[in-house]
């Protein structure tokens, strides 16, 4: 049994999409954010949820959205969470920073800030995040840099920015930040851009090699199934949805993963049910804890990855019994099928 299979009384960390409101319209947005949703949680409701999470000893809350800084009570909420000694990570697009936000981050020893940037040049970034955003994001990063705020730049790897990853790493380093890369997954608006922006097999192989050679690159989630063993050992090595992590949406819905927010995966609503009850008893969470894709069970790597990222499999095939289509075995097979024999050998 893997460590991640050991039952937890509460998540290690959770993603909290605090609002759907966003000032950008990124083509790959996992939650298709634009405007505030009707019925988004109030400050008092959020505080009550934090009280529950503190009692459950959740270690870390990762805020996203939407743009969290556009939520009017976000900074007071952040301070309240830090009073409870819960670590936070704020994922921001960097364009809505205020002096108060920068000061709040600088004074809060429990906060980590992650700024999204999807290219090392305006030509690439702005195709994904919108015209003029590159320079606005860089100005935001400049405001955060040098203030002793744990800072990272997050890039969702797509076919557009794939060749700029080393430049992005250098750019992050120039601001005292680390580069974190995320997988491009076909949820939210990314469903429409999946075919054009997803990585091809050869690119996935190159990415896996690059990651293997550079342990300083952060990979937050779901790289275990597309990477080689050395890289997998740096972090979680199987899907943590419903086991180690969960997601709260802006109206209080709870899901096993931020990338699995279809209605059928909804564990419950925090407006009606306590978080512990959802975590312990909801069918959606129990389903994910036992998920073992049928098509992977004969695979020699099954014990290592358990089928990879269900979100990619589900949104590509609408079938949770299928393998992660970008897993190491799949991309190796694709390369082998199209390459000369002398180029074929690869690790499985």
């Amino acid at each position: 049994m893997k460590y991640a299979d050991w039952p937890l009384s509460a998540p290690v960390n959770l993603t909290w999409e605090i609002t759907h409101r966003c000032n950008l319209r990124c083509v790959h947005c996992l939650s298709a954010s634009s405007r505030e949703s009707p019925g988004e949680l109030s400050f008092e409701e959020c505080r009550a949820i934090v009280d529950q999470l503190a009692e459950l000893e959740v270690f870390e809350i990762n805020f996203g959205g939407g743009e969290p800084l556009l939520k009017d009570f976000f900074l007071p909420l952040l301070r309240y969470i830090h009073e409870k000694e819960i670590v936070t990570c704020v994922s921001t697009n960097g364009t809505a920073l205020t002096d108060e936000a920068v000061a709040c981050f600088a004074e809060g020893p429990l906060v980590n800030v992650q700024v999204s940037l999807d290219g090392a040049t305006p030509e690439v970034n702005d195709r994904i995040r919108g015209e003029g955003t590159f320079h606005r994001i860089i100005r935001g990063i400049e405001r955060l840099a040098g203030r002793n705020i744990p800072l990272s730049i997050n890039t969702v790897v797509t076919s557009l920015n794939f060749t700029q990853l080393s430049e992005l790493k250098g750019l992050a380093a120039s601001y005292g930040a680390r580069l974190r890369v995320s997988r491009f997954r076909p949820s939210g608006r990314a469903r429409d851009s999946w075919e054009t922006l997803r990585l091809k097999a050869a690119q996935l192989r190159e990415l896996a090699d690059w990651l293997s050679g550079d342990p300083t690159i952060l990979t937050g989630d779901s790289f275990f199934s597309i990477s080689q063993d050395g890289r997998r050992q740096l972090g979680l090595d199987m899907c943590g949805a419903g086991k180690m992590t969960a997601c709260i949406d802006p109206v209080g819905g709870v899901y096993p993963c931020a990338f699995m927010q279809d209605g059928e995966f909804r564990g419950g609503s925090l407006k009606k049910t306590a978080f512990r009850d959802i975590w312990d008893n909801s069918p959606a969470f129990n389903f994910f804890r036992g998920l073992e894709p049928a098509s992977c069970r004969q695979c020699p790597r099954f014990k290592k990855c358990r089928g990879g990222c269900p979100a990619v499999a589900y949104f590509v095939s609408r079938d949770l019994n299928r393998a992660d289509p970008e897993c190491l075995v799949n991309w190796s097979r694709d390369i082998a099928a199209t390459s000369p024999v002398e180029n074929r050998p690869y690790i499985i």
């Binding site: 050991w6 039952p7 937890l8 009384s9 509460a10 290690v12 000893e57 270690f59 870390e60 000694e85 670590v87 429990l110």
Partner: peptide, 15 residues
């Protein structure tokens, strides 16, 4: 570092 009790033992978290 923080720690919490689980049914099987202790879960440590390194911030």
């Amino acid at each position: 570092v923080r720690v919490r009790k689980e049914s099987w033992g202790l879960l440590f978290y390194v911030r």
